[in-house]
Design a protein around this nucleic acid. Structure first.
Lengths: 346, 346
DNA sequence: TTGTAGGCGTTATCAG
DNA sequence: CTGATAACGCCTACAA
């Protein structure tokens, strides 16, 4: 009596096992009364079908997964909600899995596909560079969302939906340059050569180079070897380093809003006013940027729209109604309180 | 050739199925050379055992789960890391599952126990009131972490590790009272009668009542019917309502740091200085409270210590080395910049 | 040390 | 419409 199985239910109902199965799975060929009776007993006894057994046998589970990089990244919160809704609308089950910052999401995906019978996968965040061997092994359609660069091969084997991180980063840097800043420090993330942090750093360099400003390595700070590379703590620590270095700067571009917040605190503690003494810019468009004082100038990624498109695209591909695509979304530079013209502030 | 199974590996190696299984599962009775050979083939072919099949058969999987209330609650980030480490130390696999704010975590737990063969469960956040029928159905040991009230029955069927929300909330209210505030607005969460929001509200009332101050319902604001009840957005909206109501107040106690941040913004926009015009207090001890300007006075829960104790307790109970316990952790009132004496500020 | 056979709980495929 | 029965992929006695 420890674990209830479908057999017990069948016996209790005085019907065959398959009848119970049919009732559970909303199969058409079963009489309404029988179904009702069976369902009643199931409710009474609190029977829960064993998912492992189902996954093992089932071939056509309508199920997709979303793998999220980072245990607890608020950036993806709204995206998940939206994907959930889209999946529901098409009657797909959705499994949500977090992958920690230094984990290999493709690896996790491979395992998950074996365990559940996934029809498709969405990757939220993470690396844009993956082992082609692993990519080849992943037989179900998948789409990366929010993940920058992508090698444009002739035959697309996956989809990608993202903002052009390099260009947007360049845009923000140009914005700061237009405000008159020349000594712009950047706080970026350097966990690996294949993360958005690198793309955003490149965009920064692009902008400076285009204006003929030499890139000063003393103004580049990279988060490394920490559990959460996009934390306020990291931003704070690096901004402190920057301040301590004594190097001259009038603006800080943090490639994530959280980093920007941390940087703001460090600057504040050092007696710098924002934006009067130093301008600070972020990236992502998190809520906190709106509620922080000063409100953060940032690059807002259209997360909702991207998530919706991602889910639709994946579902369409599964249905054979679409091929893989690389889609670039425009981001918006949101001017707020944390940046100002050099020498003529606010 | 679509899906590799243990049989294929066995054939490729020219050994029996069970030999492969033994190699995979680190069984003792297998010759080192055979194991090595098998493992090599597995690596080459990229074979991944089907987890569903394993779960179905296995009885002694060393696996526990942690269920987290809220899709993306940064509050639990550090806790998860710690639990992960403790589990690893004891060679337990850890399944991490998020339950959305309005989902039933016990329900999810029941399903998970069936699917994987869990030895125990940790609940992070969520309701403290559960259907006794469901509780009874959950046959594996489980411990609630961070979840306030608990009915003290003679025979404990689960464990609970938490701060005394009611008392701590009372402490914070008293602190504000001691600063001279009498008109203290509270922003709390009212999603259900069984959440920590209610406990904290009670603590607030306790403090006022003890001082003979009448409770003014016009000062009580509850978040309701939103996807994320602990958001800055909610705090902002309620603080705005409070301001618009024209009711008199000199302090705001938000029962979560995020709510406090939102409230701060609303006050700031209304031209109120913090803490000169209005004191604001939070609860939880999130990072943001430290980096926000002004830094938030808050109740810091010892999340790390609680998480560690939680994991240890659960593992001990599983090993039969301990019985269920209700453990209360002390929280710390952290005085920072957002609160000040009434009429004699900062 | 290794291989064979049976079964975990379900669903799919058949006959009735 | 319903009920047996054979898989699903793996683990585990048990036999060799």
């Amino acid at each position: 009596m420890d674990e209830l199985t479908i057999k017990d239910i069948a016996r209790k109902c005085g019907v065959g096992i398959s009848t119970v199965s049919r009732a559970i799975n909303n199969h058409p060929d079963i009489s309404p009364e029988t179904r009702k009776m069976v369902m009643e007993v199931i409710k009474e006894t609190g029977f829960i079908p064993n998912n492992s057994a189902r996954n093992l046998k089932r071939v056509d589970a309508k199920c997709i997964a979303v793998l999220i990089k980072g245990i607890t990244n608020p950036f993806f919160g709204p995206a998940i909600q939206i994907i959930e809704k889209q999946a529901q609308k098409k009657k797909y089950a959705l499994v949500i899995q977090h992958v920690d910052a230094y984990g290999n999401e493709l690896e996790v995906a491979l395992h998950l596909v074996k365990e559940k019978r996934l029809r498709g996968i969405i990757f939220l965040g993470g690396s844009y560079q993956h082992d082609p061997v692993q990519i080849a092994k992943l037989k179900v359609p998948f789409v990366f969302c929010t993940i920058g660069k992508v090698k444009d091969t002739e035959e697309k084997v996956y989809s990608n939906i993202a903002v052009d991180d390099r260009a947007e980063s360049c845009k923000m840097t140009n914005y700061l340059l237009d405000l008159g800043h020349k000594r712009i420090a950047i706080i970026t993330e350097g966990t690996g050569a294949e993360s958005v942090g690198q793309l955003r750093l490149e965009g920064y360099k692009d902008a400076l180079t285009a204006r003929g400003i030499e890139i000063d390595e003393k103004l580049i700070y990279e988060v490394k070897d920490v559990e959460d590379p996009y934390s306020m703590e990291s931003g704070y620590a690096l901004a402190k380093k920057l301040l301590d270095s004594g190097v001259d700067f009038t603006a800080v571009f943090a490639i994530a809003d959280f980093l920007a917040v941390g940087a703001c605190r460090a600057l504040h503690e050092a007696g710098k006013r924002i934006p009067e003494d130093v301008s600070v810019a972020g990236y992502d468009g998190l809520d906190i940027g709106e509620y922080y004082t000063p409100q953060l100038t940032t690059i807002r990624q259209p997360m909702e729209a991207m998530a919706e498109r991602t889910a639709q695209l994946l579902l369409d591909i599964i249905d054979g109604k679409s091929k893989h695509e690389y889609i670039s979304f425009p981001a918006e530079l949101v001017e707020r309180e944390s940046t100002a013209k050099l020498g003529n502030q606010d």
